[in-house]
Amino acid sequence: KFNKELSVAGREIVTLPNLNDPQKKAFIFSLWDDPSQSANLLAEAKKLNDAQAPK
């Protein structure tokens, strides 16, 4: 279960257009550290992506 959630969340995070590479890497490392938090980490990444969207 975690492997699928981890890969789905990881793929989504790397495609978020408004995150820079260090931010993406930080989220990916957090996913590896605790795969059970993949849904929460993906939600946080999406929030940050939205907040950094060009206005």
Rank of each mutant, 00 (worst) to 15 (best):
V8R: 10
N18K: 01
P22N: 15
L41P: 01
V14Y: 13
R11A: 11
L19S: 01
E44A: 11
L16W: 03
A26M: 08
K4A: 12
Q52M: 06
P35E: 04
V14W: 15
S30R: 15
S36K: 09
L41G: 01
S7Y: 14
D50L: 10
F2Q: 10
K55I: 14
K47Q: 07
N49M: 01
E44M: 11
A53S: 10
K47A: 13
G10W: 15
P17A: 08
T15Y: 08
L16I: 01
Q52W: 01
E12N: 04
P17N: 05
S30V: 06
S7I: 12
K47M: 08
P22Y: 15
E12F: 14
P35R: 00
K55T: 11
Q23T: 04
P17Y: 03
K24G: 03
N40K: 14
W32V: 07
Q23I: 05
A45I: 03
S36T: 10
G10D: 05
V8H: 12
I13F: 02
A9P: 03
K55H: 12
D21P: 12
K25P: 02
N20L: 09
E5L: 11
I13C: 03
K4H: 12
S30W: 14
K4Q: 11
A9K: 04
Q52F: 05
V8M: 11
K24H: 01
P22C: 14
P54E: 09
D50C: 08
W32H: 07
L42F: 03
A45T: 01
P35A: 05
F2H: 10
L31K: 00
A26K: 11
Q52P: 02
F2G: 08
E5R: 07
N40T: 15
P54N: 10
S36D: 07
I28W: 05
P17V: 07
K1A: 11
L6Y: 05
F29T: 13
K46T: 05
F2S: 09
S38Q: 07
F27W: 01
Q37T: 04
R11H: 11
N3A: 11
W32T: 07
E44K: 08
K55G: 12
E5F: 11
A9V: 15
K25L: 14
P22W: 15
A26T: 06
K4R: 13
L19Y: 00
L6I: 11
I28F: 03
F2M: 10
P35V: 03
D50G: 06
A43Q: 10
D33N: 13
A53H: 05
N20T: 15
P17W: 03
L16Y: 05
L42E: 04
S36Y: 08
